[in-house]
């Protein structure tokens, strides 16, 4: 019964098929940087879940991405403190 197995992200364990790791240095997979993140820096913080949910719902209500909403909020706070807004 594997009608939907093709839709799984994680593929079932393949016993014995995968080659055993050899050598001493661990191989780190090279993940390409998505174009939207090139030349950009992440800013993060830890907040209560209610704030996270409120931001997500606010963004959806106005048809924005969370990224757009946060960029707008940071510009607003920069203006509030007399700094120049940076924009996206």
């Amino acid at each position: 019964m594997n009608r939907f197995a093709n839709l799984a992200d994680r593929k079932p364990k393949d016993d014995g098929a995968a080659p055993a790791p050899t050598g001493s240095a661990p191989v780190v997979a090279q993940v390409p940087t998505p174009p939207s993140r090139v030349g950009r820096k992440a800013i993060s913080g830890y907040f209560v879940p209610e704030l996270s949910l409120a931001l997500h719902t606010c963004a959806r209500r106005h048809g924005l991405s969370l990224q757009d909403l946060m960029a707008e909020a940071f510009d607003d706070v920069l203006r509030k403190y007399g700094e120049s807004p940076i924009g996206r």
Partner: peptide, 27 residues
């Protein structure tokens, strides 16, 4: 070990695409 119901994983952004594909596959 394969006894239904079948379970697949999904990253949240892929949920709509997986629903569409599963619907097409008879879910």
């Amino acid at each position: 070990q394969g006894t239904p119901p079948e379970v697949i994983d999904s990253a949240p952004p892929r949920i709509p695409a997986k629903i569409a594909a599963a619907a097409a596959q008879g879910a």
